[in-house]
Each structure stands twice: as C-alpha cells, then as structure tokens.
Design a protein around this nucleic acid. Sequence first.
RNA 1: UCCUCAGUAGCUCAAUGGCAGAGCAACCGGCUGUUAACCGGUAGGUUGUUGGUUCGAAUCCAACCUGAGGAGCCA
Length: 445
Amino acid sequence: MTTEIAIENIAQYVGQKVTIKGWLYSSTRKGKLLFMRLRDGTGITQGVAFRPEIGDELFETLKRLGQESSLIVTGEVRANDRAPGVPKGYEVNIESAQVLQDTQDYPIGLKEHGVDFLLDHRHLWLRSRRQWAIMRIRATVKRAIIDFLDSHGFLNVDTPIITPSAAEGTSTLFEVDYFDEKAYLAQTGQLYNEANIMAFGKVYCFGPTFRAEKSKTRRHLAEFWMVEPEMAFFDLDDLMAFEEAFVSYIVQTTLEKRRAELEVLERDVSVLENVKPPFPRISYDEAIERLHAIREATEDEELKELLKIEWGDDFGSPHETELTKQFDRPVFVYGYPTAVKAFYMEPWPGRPEICKSVDLLAPEGYGEIIGGSERMSDPDLLVEAIRRHELPMAHYQWYVDLRRYGSVPHSGFGLGLERTVAWICGIDHVRETIAFPRTLTRMRP
RNA sequence: UCCUCAGUAGCUCAAUGGCAGAGCAACCGGCUGUUAACCGGUAGGUUGUUGGUUCGAAUCCAACCUGAGGAGCCA
C-alpha cells in the first residue's frame, strides 16, 4: 500500500513508501547506482535506483531514459543531507517504476542557453527550475494582492478590455475592429473604477492590460497584468499609507510562503526583509535637487549625460535608478509637474503647476512599480483639463458626470504585476515573470 | 523611430585573411553518493542571406534579414 504524494510535502513521509508521478529532470549514473532528479510540478526530489535491488532489466530501462521522460516511481522516502532538490535533503529509494514515455532529444539541456533559443522554446522552458520558481512566486504575489484587498473592504469589479478611446490619451494602443467601429484594447480600468467606487466605495480590477508602445527594454511587455485599486474618500496621504501597507504585505507574504523558490533564484532576501512601513517620501522638487547633487558628484561622464534633468522634465529610467539607490526600500515620489502626468490628477492646492500624483519606485533599479494619484473631483476643472489635452469630450461625458452627482475626494493607483514579481525575484527581465510573454518581437509560442 | 552589439555543430562559444575547433547534448563503454559529475571512444558543418574585394573570406566592405540591450514612452 503506497501513498501518492506531492514532492513539496515529501518531508512528512520519511520512512514511508510513496508514489510520485512526474518527469525526469536530470540523471547521473555511477555504475550500479543511478540518481534521478524527478519533478512533479510541486518540487524536485531525487530518486535513487540501485541495480542489485531493482534488477538488471528495470535498471537498464531507467538508465536510458531521456530528460523529461514521464514516469511513475514508488519507493521509500528517506532523509539524506546529500540529496539535492526543492525541498532538498530527501530522496526516494526506488523500488519499482512505470515509464509512460521515454523522451529522447529534449531540446533544453541543463547547461546555459541563449535568450532567443529559450524564448522560442518557452513552452518547454517553463519546466526548468528557475522558471518554475518564478511562476510559483508570481501566483503567490497575485494571491497576496487579492487577499489583502478582499480583507480591506474592497470589492472586485471587472472593467472592460475593449474600450472606445485612450483612457489617458498618452499611450499607443492596440486597435481592434468592433463591429466596423474602431476600438482599442484597454491600457487601464481606472476610469471605470472611478464610476465603480461611487457605487461600491472601494474597488479593484485585476487583469491583463495592453500597450502597443514600441518599447524594447527589460521592463516592458505588450501585454501585462495590473491591479488597480480605487478608493472613495481617500486623499494623497491616505493613498501613500495604503500603498506602503499593501506592498509590504505582498513582499512579506511572499517571503513567508516562497522561501524555497527565492532560494532557487538565489535572491538576497535581506533586501526584501526591509520592505516594511514607513517608506521614504520625497517630493518631486526634492527628487530634482537630489538628482542634481548625484549628477554633480559623479565622475562618470556617461552617467552625467544620462542624468541631465531640469525641473518640469519627467524622470527617465536612469534617474529612477540613481534615486532609488539612496534608499533601502521602495520610495515614494509625489507632486509631479501637471504637464508630464495624465489629465485627471488633482492639482496641488496653491501650486497649479504640480499635481497630487505619487509614484512608488522599487529599489535596485527596478523602477516604477506603482503609479497613482488623487483624482480631480471638481467637474469644471476636469472639463477644462479634458479640453487642454484635446481629448474627445463626448467620450468623457460619463466621466465628468461622476463629478456632477455626489463628487468626493478619491484616489487610486495601478501596480504592475510583472515588474513587482521581477523585483521580488531579483531577475533582470519582466519577460520571465509571465508564462507566455508578449513583446515587440514575440507573439509565439 | 534612433543608438549599440550579436548571428559558426542540436545548445554555449572559440578560430581576425591561410586545413572550421572545443565543451555540453546524442551514441558506445566504465564507475555505489551524484548535484550543470567524472574517465575513454564514435558521430556531428551550405559559418544568417545576397553581392563585392582577394591567389585565398567565418574573418575585410556594402545592403538586407533575424535577435538582444538601451533611449524615448510607460507599469
């Protein structure tokens, strides 16, 4: 009588006979001894086959199995410090095995490969240890996001993906044919969220979003996931306090639940352990001063050139990177110039040239993971802003209505899932944080 | 759209004007503690494409194709 187990729970079965259904990840032969690393989707463990114990026939069969062959093995679990795996330190002494398919010529070896090759084989690449760890962490981050919001009085309300016009009037969007009318894939659900909060108080949408920008960097995807919470009766200070609690919860939950995966990725978790409130808050004005000082101090001529900035300019990626290097946790930058931000942000009282916006920049060069703001609540100012940005007023009539019927101060933000996961995992490209990335040059597999 | 870099065996790379090579993977054999093992052997090539320079081009030149990194824009 054997128990079918998941490898992630193997520690509970030391001394017991178990069955594992999975795939051969790699194997090493040593004469009469055969070490088989087996994966079942929940972890990796080592199967040990000893020729005199299992007989020549089965030993020969197992010895010749190719990488990624599918099989079912049965044997006793024992603890052994030398055994590798996730979790490590356990192995199964193979007594019997059933081969479902002997795979030969699996394309992805255990040695290093180039990005182009790996992306062409993404459907198989997902099976490798690092990718497996990243996707498990992504699922945990997603779960933490939903749990936090659901337990803080938020209602999950889905927003449309097909929209009639650019919500913010800035990005390039994917065009679709909507029954002979031009429509676009949504780049944000925010405007709809603003309608929803007036009905439900606090809401969030969480889904895929689309940008047709021809961006070709480690921080960009054409299709990515964004969670957008929106809150009625929330000002900019409330917003920052909420965001830091939210991000801290996500990071601490991941640390707690995905230690083994972070270890696979060789992530320095001490950096993540710092991610607790309060986060430093600096104004845009102060950020510009800091950047000028950094620029003065650097000897690097190239960096000096990249860091050129004047009040009123938006930050580029080099600016964000240098700025975040000064802190050991995410940093808020608030009060950006109105001119570089979207039309709907509330003006700063007494300083109309800046607005009540706030971005959260992740440390270690990961850049902006959250963009948010207090939204404009005065109907007349909003109409004026829509005109100033030359947006089609007819499309925004309903949005202005929200300020005509019971307008309240309200705020919200969007958090990019892939950038957040990349930062938590400590990996250098967002394309590895989603199962099938869509980039400027890749739509397959 | 612009800038930079790359393309050679299934994979990762070397060969910079003179016989196209190595490691891994594959195949054959050996080993009772492997961890991307190790040891011996076998097989594996239209050097991204087209044109040019040259006695001779993977190497130099031009155009193109493909990919990567970055800028801009953004999460």
